[in-house]
Amino acid sequence: MGYIQEKSRINSIFDKVEGRERVSDEDALFLLENADLLTLGRLADIARRQKHPDNVATFVVDRNINYTNVCVAGCKFCAFQTKKNSPDAYLLEFEEIFSKIQELVDWGGTTLLMQGGLNPDLGLDFYVELFRQIKKRFPQIQVHSLSASEIFYISKLEKLPIKEVLKILKEAGLDSLPGGGAEILSDEIRIQISSNKVNTETWLEVHRSAHQLGMKTTATMMFGHIEKPKHIVEHLRHIRELQDESLKENKGFFTAFIPWTFQKGGTKLDHLETATTVYYLKVLAVSRIYLDNFDNIQSSHVTQTMKVGPVGLHFGANDLGSTMIEENVVTSTGWKVAAPRPEKMADIIRKAGFKPAQRDTYYNIVRHF
């Protein structure tokens, strides 16, 4: 494609974004493969301001409790998992989990994120009892827990339909689902990096079922490994289509999209070149431009550092994620994860040129700074 044709294509996409017209898969792929970083930033900022004209950027005070590290999935990108008979294997006692939640409450937190491995010793009764006790002790905490892979694994162990498992867990106290386990929603990629976890159709079915039960969920993407730009667009198409479907039903839906990059360190993919900061910001920007039915896009300071995370607010994101009181999965690669206090998080957002606000799981504002 020549310069004039390329310029004409970009101008056409600018017209679409400014006119709030949906961009196509072809547009998104063209932007990923051809547009420069600043052009993408301008386009994404237009799209963000259309949804968030007040220039508020949010964050949540939550805690990520990894209740077990025993996992049979064997994902090539994971350094956290371990086998049942490993000396490093663990399963947290309920009292230890409650102690961690109390610290979250003391921080002024609202959201409990719990994810672990696919542990064959943990059936549905374990989660029902855990969530019931959490809600009894901490009724104010929003339980945003269990990935699609965990939900499907429980359904397999119990020989129950996915929707029935979700219904039982919801009644026990599960409020919403995180988007973990999505990686890249393309089976061409999943079969190579996470063949023992849910396929694309099943990941989508878990979230579809949660939405039908009135639960909200988040969508994620872990990129920067073996995928190509076309796989990223395929991933975005799947979640945009499910969001269209869920919003039409007027029940549950995706509250946000959170892309982050693969981190090396003790994984079977350590030989790969990891994504650059520039590529991360490009993917973040294209996500905002393409996902016109998502209100919230999160910038990942967890994988990009707190220097780059706030920059993402200028590339389409309106949320800086979590204070991350505790994080074990990314940390297991040797990557250092920041855990700023709420006031520090607000100061970081303010210095980036935005109005900081603390939110809850559902993106309701709970505190302005």
Rank of each mutant, 00 (worst) to 15 (best):
L269T: 02
L104I: 14
D292R: 07
K336R: 15
F98I: 12
G321A: 11
D295R: 13
N250H: 09
H52Y: 03
H314K: 14
D15G: 13
G265W: 05
K167F: 05
Q140A: 13
P87N: 03
E171C: 01
N66Y: 04
V311F: 08
A148P: 13
T58N: 07
K84G: 07
V329K: 02
S86V: 12
N199S: 10
Y67A: 11
L242C: 02
R359H: 04
W335C: 07
Q304S: 12
H144W: 04
L31Q: 09
N34Y: 11
I13N: 09
R288P: 03
R132N: 15
V330S: 07
D15P: 05
L236W: 03
V61Y: 02
K163I: 13
L160E: 13
G214W: 01
F138T: 13
F138C: 08
V105K: 15
Y90L: 05
L118G: 10
V233H: 04
R63L: 01
L313K: 05
K156R: 15
H225L: 00
K76R: 14
L247Y: 01
F369E: 13
L118F: 07
P87E: 01
E21N: 13
R137S: 13
E183P: 08
S24L: 08
N293M: 02
S195A: 14
F315R: 10
S12M: 11
S209R: 03
L213W: 00
G179V: 05
H225G: 03
V17S: 04
H207N: 15
D54S: 09
T68W: 01
T202N: 09
R132W: 03
T277H: 00
I232C: 02
L272R: 01
G353N: 04
D25K: 15
W260L: 05
G179D: 09
K84M: 14
K84S: 15
Q102S: 13
L38V: 14
G353E: 01
L269C: 01
R42L: 04
S299G: 05
L204I: 14
Y90N: 10
I134V: 15
E326P: 09
L313F: 01
A256H: 06
V72H: 08
F152Q: 14
F369I: 11
L160C: 04
V330M: 08
S86I: 12
L118P: 12
Y3K: 11
H368A: 09
T68F: 01
L242Q: 03
E103T: 14
G123V: 02
R288V: 01
F80C: 07
T305E: 05
L113G: 06
E234V: 02
S246H: 00
F138S: 10
K282V: 01
R208K: 15
H231G: 07
M345K: 10
S145H: 07
T274Y: 00
E93V: 03
A79N: 07
D175M: 02
K228E: 15
D295Y: 09
A285T: 10
H238M: 05
G334R: 09
K248A: 12
N293G: 03
A346W: 02
E205L: 08
M1Y: 12
V72P: 10
V278A: 13
S209M: 02
I168E: 08
